[in-house]
Every structure is written in C-alpha cells, then in structure tokens.
Design a protein around this nucleic acid. Structure first.
Length: 279
DNA sequence: AATGGGACCTGCGCGC
DNA sequence: TGCGCGCAGGTCCCAT
C-alpha cells in the first residue's frame, strides 16, 4: 500500500525524470479517477504545461504546474505512476495493469497512472493548500519532536494503532507501517493511546520515524500493487517483522505472530512481545 | 464528540 | 476445472 515511504520514493524518482518536461497530450481511459475539474477541462488544463516542482504531503503527491495551477494525485491502495511507460494499446508496464490516465510529454515519453481498483484521485486545483484533505491533515512524524508527539498522545483515548493511522492526527502512516512501528516499540495495538508511558511514547516516536526512513531507503514495500516509477518492486518487504506474517514465528521471541481485526483492518502483532496488560 | 462500520472498487487466492 | 466468495486497505460518509 502506498504510505509515506512509497509516495516519497515515487516523488524522488519522478523529480529525477519528468521535471520541466512539457505535457503535449493527456489520454483518459477511465474518467472515474478524475475528481475535478471535468474530463475535458482537466485535459485542457494540462496541455502545453510543464511540471515545475513536486511536493508530498502525507500520502498526497502535488505537482506544481507552469500555469500556476496544481495537479494532485492520491494513489490510495492500488495507484501506480510508471515512467517511462512502455505501454502498448493502453496496457501499462506491468502485466495486467491498465493505464487509467496517460500523460504524454514533448519528447513522446509517457507517464502512466495505473489503478486497478479506481480508488485513486486526480485533481487540478488553483491552490492545493485550500483542499479539505490538506487543511485537516495532521503533521508528519518528521515535522514534530518527541515532546510534541507525547503531548498529542496524552489527549487521545482511542487505541494506539487507530491513532497513529489517523491522517488528521499524524500523517503518512498506513496499516503496514503502523503494525511494524508498534512491533518495534513492543506496544500492543489495542492499548489506549493515553495509557502509554513516557518511555513508550518516546520509543514509539523513534520507531515510527526509523521504520519510515528505512522503508524509504529500500524504495518502499511492494505488497499488493505498489511498484516504483521504474516498475521495480520496493525492497523493504524483506524486512517486515509482523505484517502479513500470521502464524509465523516472531523474529524477537519465536512465538507466533497473531492477526486480529482492528478498525476492520488486518492487525499483526506478537502477543508475547506486545502485551496488552502490564505484567 | 468519538467510534465503528460500510461504501467505494477490482483482482487474487482459496475452498468446494 | 471452474466458480463464487472473502479479503486486501486509504479515505469518506453515515449512524449510533
């Protein structure tokens, strides 16, 4: 799933290959992913415009255009950005992946937006800072210090995993890295947020940042559909400790990794290392 | 107000 | 074999 490390990886790769290239054509194969403006206007807004700068806020990518407007892309679960695409007749670079929107540049290269489940969202807006999603977005772990993080947790009563996945609370962490960070900090995902000790809060904050940085270093985690812009998988999946490892041995104690459903999301943890009640 | 669950979608893996 | 079902999860929305 594209979370902060995956979106950051995509941002960095795109910066290296598409900045300042003028868009000459846009092909929309499925208009469902175009949220605003309407299809025709969307295309017109991009013609003969170049991408000047790429910004990432949480899991949202923001392209600053030479026209002064912004193209925002949210990949949701199955969105991919592939460049240069070697598509033939609408097929993306990955087998079976269909391009929903293709951007053609002046040099005839293609940037494909693929998204099998059509949850992705593309917008062109005058000011990305006015987007509701942005206005409500919490700080990224890298925007705050441990003191601020501890202060934020103190007033939360929800389960800790739900808290750290709440983009309005803290942004960038999705299901995969929430599971990993909690395991590394040895904190049970169902602990009430405000029940964490000062030490646990500090450790969790550190592990959140560490796991995100490590994942960025390895180009993200290719589970499900995520791939890098080049089409290569993200290698961090090799280093997952608990995610999708139900019934397998805990790397720390050898016990069995458990899976529960929390907020209707798969939640993986080691019940021996991450205790619900203090012993 | 906070919380939980469903909706949005498609593809894949599993069991019969 | 092939089909149908359940599940995957980012975000929004609604009900409680």
């Amino acid at each position: 799933m594209p979370e902060l490390p995956e979106v950051e990886t995509i941002k960095r790769e795109l910066e290296a290959v598409i900045l300042d290239k003028r868009i000459t054509a846009v092909v929309i194969n499925n208009a469902k992913v175009i949220r605003e403006p309407k299809k025709e206007k969307f295309v017109a807004n991009l013609k003969n415009v170049a991408i000047k700068k790429i910004i990432r806020k949480g899991k949202l990518l923001i392209f600053e255009l030479s026209s002064g407007k912004f193209l925002t892309i949210h990949l949701k679960m199955t969105g991919q950005l592939i460049y240069p695409s070697h598509q033939k007749r609408g097929g993306g670079v990955n087998p079976g992946k269909i391009s929903r929107v293709s951007f053609r540049f002046f040099d005839n290269t293609l940037l494909d937006f693929n998204d099998s489940r059509l949850f992705g969202e593309l917008r062109i807006v005058d000011d990305w800072q006015k987007l509701k999603f942005i206005k409500e977005l919490g700080p990224e772990p890298f925007d705050i210090d441990a003191e601020k993080f501890k202060e934020m947790l103190a007033s939360k009563k929800t389960k800790i995993k739900v808290s750290i996945m709440d983009q309005k609370f803290i942004s960038g962490i999705g299901n995969l890295y929430a599971n990993e960070a909690l395991f590394r900090a040895k904190i049970h995902p169902q602990r009430p947020t405000n029940s964490l000790s000062e030490k646990e809060k500090e450790l969790l904050f550190k592990e959140i940042k560490d796991v995100l940085l490590e994942a960025i270093h390895y180009g993200g985690s290719s589970v499900d559909q995520y791939v890098q812009v080049s089409g290569k998988p993200g290698e961090y999946v090799k280093y997952h400790k608990v995610y999708d490892r139900e019934g397998e041995p805990c790397f720390n104690c050898g016990g069995k990794v458990e899976r529960i459903s929390l907020g209707s999301r798969g939640t993986y943890f080691c019940p021996a290392c991450q205790r619900l009640k203090r012993s």
